[in-house]
Each structure stands twice: as structure tokens, then as C-alpha cells.
């Protein structure tokens, strides 16, 4: 792992990637805290993982498929799906202009 010091630009970049708006105070606070955390997790370098495969699923499941033709009971009606939206028009979600 390379030793990294986080700077303000990186925090702003992460905030942009995460679609979060930060105040100036928050930027400095998060910079310090994230740096502390990143320093702590460096201890993983003490573990030899050169010949180890990564684990993403702990109970060894593979290739779980939905059966063809099975009724999908998860579907919501348009009314149900729209019910919690604050901003809608003619049963459509209203979003910000993209272009």
C-alpha cells in the first residue's frame, strides 16, 4: 500500500464522486479523519496475501439465477412506485435538466 496523505482537492473530488456538498469546515474535518482511518488500515500490509484469492461472498454461493417464467411478485404498480416521490408530473418522476 502506498503511503498517502489526503489533500483538500482529493476530498473535494471524493465529495463530487459521491454527490455530496461539503462546507469548508467539513472539508478539513473529513480530510483529517479519513487520513487517520487510511493510516490505521495500513496494518493490513503486515499480512502476507500474495498467494491468496480475494473473497467477495463468504458462504461460497455461485451462479444464483431467477427461474425463467416465474412470476415476479416484487413488481410495484405505477401508483405504488410513485407514492413516495415528492416531485412528479402526470405520473412521471421529475428530475433536474441533464443537458
Amino acid at each position: 500500500m502506498k503511503k498517502s496523505k489526503l489533500n483538500k482537492e482529493e476530498i473535494l473530488h471524493l465529495a463530487k464522486l459521491s454527490n455530496l456538498t461539503l462546507t469548508n469546515d467539513e472539508i478539513e474535518k473529513y480530510r483529517k479523519q479519513l487520513e487517520e482511518t487510511v493510516e490505521y488500515v495500513e496494518n493490513l500490509n503486515e499480512l502476507d496475501t500474495r498467494k491468496v484469492e480475494p473473497t467477495s461472498q463468504t458462504t461460497n454461493l455461485t451462479d444464483v439465477f431467477f427461474k425463467d417464467g416465474v412470476e415476479n411478485k416484487r413488481g410495484l404498480s405505477q401508483n405504488e412506485a410513485m407514492k413516495n416521490a415528492k416531485n412528479k408530473k402526470n405520473d412521471y418522476f421529475v428530475v433536474k435538466r441533464i443537458m
Binding site: I11, L14, A15, S18, N19, L20, T21, L22, E26, Y30, Q33, L34, T37, V38, A81, N84, A85, K86, N87, F93, V94, V95
Partner: peptide
């Protein structure tokens, strides 16, 4: 958009975790 409020409602801890 589909439900809930906007992302500025996230608290301190959630924002910290998202960014890390």
C-alpha cells in the same frame, strides 16, 4: 427523486463513510 429527501440530508457519519 423516487423517494426520500436529497443527499444534503445525510448526517456526518454517513458522509464520512461514503467518501472513504
Amino acid at each position: 427523486i423516487r423517494y426520500g429527501n436529497e443527499r444534503n440530508e445525510f448526517g456526518v457519519e454517513a458522509k464520512r463513510r461514503i467518501m472513504l
